[in-house]
Every structure is written in structure tokens, then in C-alpha cells.
């Protein structure tokens, strides 16, 4: 079963990330370290690409489902706003609007618009 072998690969990189984070005490999540390790591994042609893809693609497809329990929590924290909700909402929504606009403008300036995005087929 390629899916199960691929899942084992993912768990292996996650556990390796967990080990590194615990040993070094870095305030980074094990998942992100695992992600970087996996990318490095694939970059070095470490093997297992087919198996990893069989497990990774369905997992990425259900990512939205996996973060839903956390999203629901947002509706239950209104009492945690501690009377500061104007400042908090203004900061979150205004700050996000400003940073999204800055990012888009900055990227376009530095990267240049692709002449025809998605023209070449991804490998």
C-alpha cells in the first residue's frame, strides 16, 4: 500500500522534527521542521517520492477539514476580548488589510508579473 508507506514517511519526518525541536529547544513547531526536512530529502533525491505523494496529496486536500475544530473555537472566545474589542478588531482587520496590500504591491514590484502564469507544466 503506497498510501501507508507514504504516511509512515510523513510520520518519520514529523518525529524527526519533534526530536530536533526538543533537543535544540527552538520555538519552532515540529511540523514545520518536518516539512523542511522532507523538502530537503526530496531535493537530494532521497527516494520514496511516489509513496510520499500518495499520502501527501489526500492529506493536503483535507487540510481545511483538519483546521476546522480550531476555527469553530473563534466563535467561543468573545468573552476573552476583555473589553478591548474595538482595538483588537481594528488591529486584526486593519492590520491584515494593510499587510496584504503591502505584500501584493511589494511582490509585484520585486518579482515582476509572470507573462503567462501556469504556462509551463509543473514537474
Amino acid at each position: 500500500m503506497p498510501v501507508l508507506r507514504g504516511f509512515l514517511w510523513l510520520l518519520g519526518f514529523l518525529l524527526l522534527g519533534e526530536t530536533l525541536v526538543t533537543l535544540t529547544g527552538l520555538p519552532v513547531s515540529a511540523g514545520v521542521v518536518g516539512l523542511l526536512l522532507l523538502t530537503t530529502w526530496l531535493r537530494l533525491h532521497g527516494g520514496g517520492l511516489g509513496d510520499i505523494a500518495a499520502a501527501a496529496q489526500p492529506l493536503i486536500a483535507v487540510l481545511a477539514l483538519l483546521i476546522m475544530p480550531g476555527v469553530v473555537g473563534a466563535f467561543f472566545i468573545l468573552d476573552a476580548l476583555e473589553g478591548q474589542w474595538t482595538a483588537i478588531l481594528a488591529a486584526l482587520i486593519g492590520g491584515t488589510l494593510l499587510s496584504v496590500m503591502t505584500t501584493l504591491a511589494l511582490m509585484r514590484r520585486l518579482m515582476g508579473e509572470a507573462s503567462a502564469p501556469g504556462e509551463e507544466a509543473p514537474p
Binding site: 518536518g34 522532507l38 526530496l42
Partner: peptide
């Protein structure tokens, strides 16, 4: 594991 999968 889904976060790790984003490495693909």
C-alpha cells in the same frame, strides 16, 4: 503529518 506533507 499534513504540515509535513506540504513539503511535497
Amino acid at each position: 503529518p499534513a504540515t509535513v506533507a506540504l513539503g511535497l
